[in-house]
Design a protein around this nucleic acid. Structure first.
Lengths: 337, 337
DNA sequence: TTGAAAGCGCTAACAA
DNA sequence: TTGTTAGCGCTTTCAA
């Protein structure tokens, strides 16, 4: 049924070795046999068995990506775009992409271990890094190739791409201050996530620069989803002196915050300002459109993937540590300029 | 460095075969050796080389999913949720999930062929089916296992899960008619997509049931993204007698339509009604919240995956053809009830 | 220019 | 209960 090298060899009365070499265009095969082999291979519809090739090379030509889910519904446009960036780059470089999903925790680490031990992948892309990240500790300790999107708390001695979250948040701070906002609330992610502190610290610093103090009681922790944003915005709005601007640390939570505001009959951009972070496509189409910070997620996916493959192949990288400057996108959610 | 069966065998002075059998708990191995093997394996940190196992089994234990992207930005919450459903089920059943991305067309088919020929996957999940679908034609012809989410134009002799789009749209139609809308516009997907016609036909039929005719000039084709919805809604609104209700065939386009309406200073749910389809999490958090049709995407992912694995393993399925009835979710985008 | 032989790491049929 | 042998499909010495 399925054609193998042996079938071709039998057919033309040559050895498997010769056929293999002919197919790989080795120059120690006579032009005639080469020609013949190619022709017969074509005719018989031969394709190499990748499993066999990989076993022999001791390489899986596959990179792994384990998506962090929280709860069953995982509907994050941010990650689907990152995935597309990684996936497209991977195919173009001849690699397969193995995707798995897991919420952070013990089981998550098991999946990494299983992949590493079973030699199912040649390397990993680690996303949504945490301050103490067992995944990177593990991979580092095993000396297993990986590239992270994001940094960890201490010892960032591994290749990564990260965005300068503090910088992004400073631009948000500046923008809000310029518009005259002084009473500001923040919906932050779980502080275990590395990007949480850089963003919140950036906001705090940016505000301080303009003589405004971020009240720590006005910093709530949300779970990065719309519902989380909704809930936390309500907390903020229930305060005695509710903030006049809510800075969400990602777009999804910002959307939730907008809902919360609107559900109270208030108007986003007039009564309460809202900002996001990420600039997912939806941000442009909310009502009002969301002022946020743009990250080139698709490109980041490509970069991370490319770096990983270089790392796997032992090709030196131009730069092991990339920190991108995100840019402020002003729309209408903080009022008309 | 890496421990193999041979290493264990050498260590305890037994054959590789015995070790292999011991590890698999065959009952023709003495309890003592079994015990010993397990212990030594543990101690040496042995894990089987999956590549080798797979080559020998002639099974990749991997299922393939090729995501349809349109343009570089691929940010579809619908698919990230489907992916999570598939991914979680796959791990739980011991399968790897290979994900690739491609826009429809020749290159897409090449990817399928490459995976099939190289025996990289044991089966596919085919999503976003088209009326004439080269992918399913190809897989059918090769007799290669797959399960589709959606049907094709003719000859649906393969396992699939689909939602009853016509039914969903009839509920939308009924809802709108009940609220008194008579001048209705529709933003449909590319008619090549199978679900396009079932949804549009459903809408048309539902309207007809109530004595209303859907004007074919009021059916625009959008690309399933927010921008597409935005653009097409504008076309509709530019008409001499613009529709008072816009039925979008997915939520993303509905969001775009809402933007378009709002950008004209009109109010969604008062001046113009809008409906969607899919009920992605965002739908609950727009302003106003979107009336739409709910599909249990996460579960569908799990079902499709499970069916595929049964198909691969030759286990009979309870039902090869599943058509789910989606349910209307009334929110505020058509006005208060 | 070609082929025999070995080996990647594993499983399985068959003997002993 | 265990080991020998063969083989999955491929690549790569090495010798001819």
């Amino acid at each position: 049924m399925v054609v193998t090298l042996k079938d071709i060899a039998n057919r033309i009365g040559k050895s498997v070795t010769t056929v293999s070499r002919a197919l790989h265009d080795y120059n120690d095969v006579s032009p005639e046999t080469k020609e013949l082999v190619h022709q017969v291979a074509e005719e018989m519809g031969y394709s190499p068995n990748t499993l066999a090739q990989r076993l022999q090379k001791r390489q899986s030509d596959t990179i792994g990506l384990i998506l962090p889910t929280f709860g069953p519904r995982f509907s994050d446009p941010f990650f689907s775009e990152l995935l597309a960036g990684i996936g497209n780059k991977a195919v173009s470089l001849g690699y397969d992409l193995l995707v798995s999903t897991s919420s952070p925790g013990e089981r998550e680490l098991q999946i990494y271990k299983k992949m590493v031990n079973g030699r199912r992948v040649d390397g990993f892309i680690v996303v949504r890094t945490r301050k103490e990240d067992r995944r990177v500790e593990y991979l580092l300790e095993k000396d297993f190739p990986f590239v992270a999107f994001g940094r960890v708390g201490i010892n960032n001695e591994f290749p990564y791409v990260d965005e300068d979250g503090a910088y992004g948040m400073r631009s948000i701070a500046k923008h809000l201050v310029t518009l005259g906002f002084t009473n500001i609330g923040c919906i932050a992610p779980d502080p275990q996530l590395t990007f949480a502190s850089s963003r919140v610290d950036g906001l705090r610093a940016g505000l301080t620069d303009h003589g405004i103090t971020l009240d720590e009681d006005y910093v709530c922790i949300g779970d990065l989803t719309q519902s989380g944003g909704y809930k936390q915005a309500n907390c903020l709005l229930d305060k005695l002196h509710p903030p006049s601007a809510i800075v969400a640390c990602n777009d999804l939570m910002a959307f939730g915050a907008m809902s919360a505001i609107q559900d109270r009959g208030l108007i986003v951009g007039e009564d309460v300002a809202v900002t996001g972070f990420d600039d997912i496509p939806m941000a442009e189409h909310t009502h009002p459109p969301l002022t946020t910070v743009h990250q080139p997620v698709y490109q980041i996916g490509g970069m991370v993937c490319e770096m990983l493959i270089k790392r796997i192949q032992g090709v030196p990288m131009d730069d092991e540590h990339l920190v991108l400057k995100p840019s402020l996108i002003v729309r209408k959610s903080c009022g008309e300029k």
